[in-house]
Simulated assay, not measured.
Amino acid sequence: MNYTTEIIVNVPLNTFIKKFDNPENMKHWQRGLIGYDYISGTPGDIGAKMKLNYKMGKRNMELIETITHKKMPYEFHVMFDTNGMHNIQENYFEETPEGHTKWTSKSEFIPTSFILRMMTLIMPGTFKKQSKKYMQDFKNFAEKGTSVSNAKT
């Protein structure tokens, strides 16, 4: 399953990248994030791996993030792996004529389990909605300083 989401964040590109490229800020825009640990590589560099732990309702989820391409401030690509799913995400950033930042995210979800294969076929909107929610939460954090760190998931 492939899809693209976009959002305009009303901050300059350099401000956007400073907030986006700081793992300490993830808790402010990634609902349910409990914590993260570096596994290998130099943090923030291509090839670096990080384990991300989330609590979604009553369910715990662990993702392994691998940075696959980084050309800041314009491109940041990662892979996420978890039980039953492989996700490739390509993020592109550009400054608008108004001095804001346009964030385009291309997502590819490759299910590796039957149940998740069915979910991507039956409920693709759920994945798109989640991606858009993270982007909106980042926008609120970058523009207004609003954090989701205490929000219910």
Rank of each mutant, 00 (worst) to 15 (best):
Q30C: 13
I39S: 04
E65N: 11
K49L: 06
A48M: 02
I67S: 09
K102F: 02
H28Y: 00
S40M: 02
I39D: 01
K71Y: 08
N25H: 01
A48S: 14
D81I: 11
H77P: 06
H77L: 06
E62L: 08
E62H: 09
F76V: 12
I34L: 13
E94H: 08
M61N: 08
G57I: 00
P73Q: 06
T82H: 03
H69N: 15
N22F: 01
T101N: 05
I88K: 06
G41D: 02
K71C: 07
L63Q: 11
E24A: 14
N83L: 06
N22P: 02
Y38W: 02
T101G: 07
D81A: 15
E24G: 03
N91F: 03
E94N: 10
Y74F: 13
P43E: 01
Y74G: 05
G41R: 00
N83K: 12
T96R: 07
P23M: 05
M85S: 07
E75S: 10
G44C: 06
H100Y: 14
M72W: 11
A48P: 03
V78T: 13
F76N: 15
G41K: 00
M85Y: 02
K51C: 11
R59K: 14
L52R: 05
N25T: 03
T68S: 12
I88N: 07
L33E: 03
Q30L: 15
R31K: 07
K51W: 04
G41E: 04
Y92L: 08
N22C: 08
E90W: 07
T96A: 06
N60C: 06
N60F: 12
Y38N: 11
K71W: 04
A48R: 01
M50P: 07
E95I: 08
K102M: 10
K49G: 03
E95S: 14
I34G: 06
K58R: 14
N25F: 00
K51Q: 15
P23Q: 05
L33H: 00
S40L: 02
N53C: 08
E98T: 12
K58A: 11
D21Q: 03
G84V: 06
Y54Q: 02
E62F: 06
D37R: 13
M72I: 14
F76C: 14
M26G: 12
K58Q: 12
P43W: 00
M72S: 14
K102P: 02
H100S: 12
M85L: 14
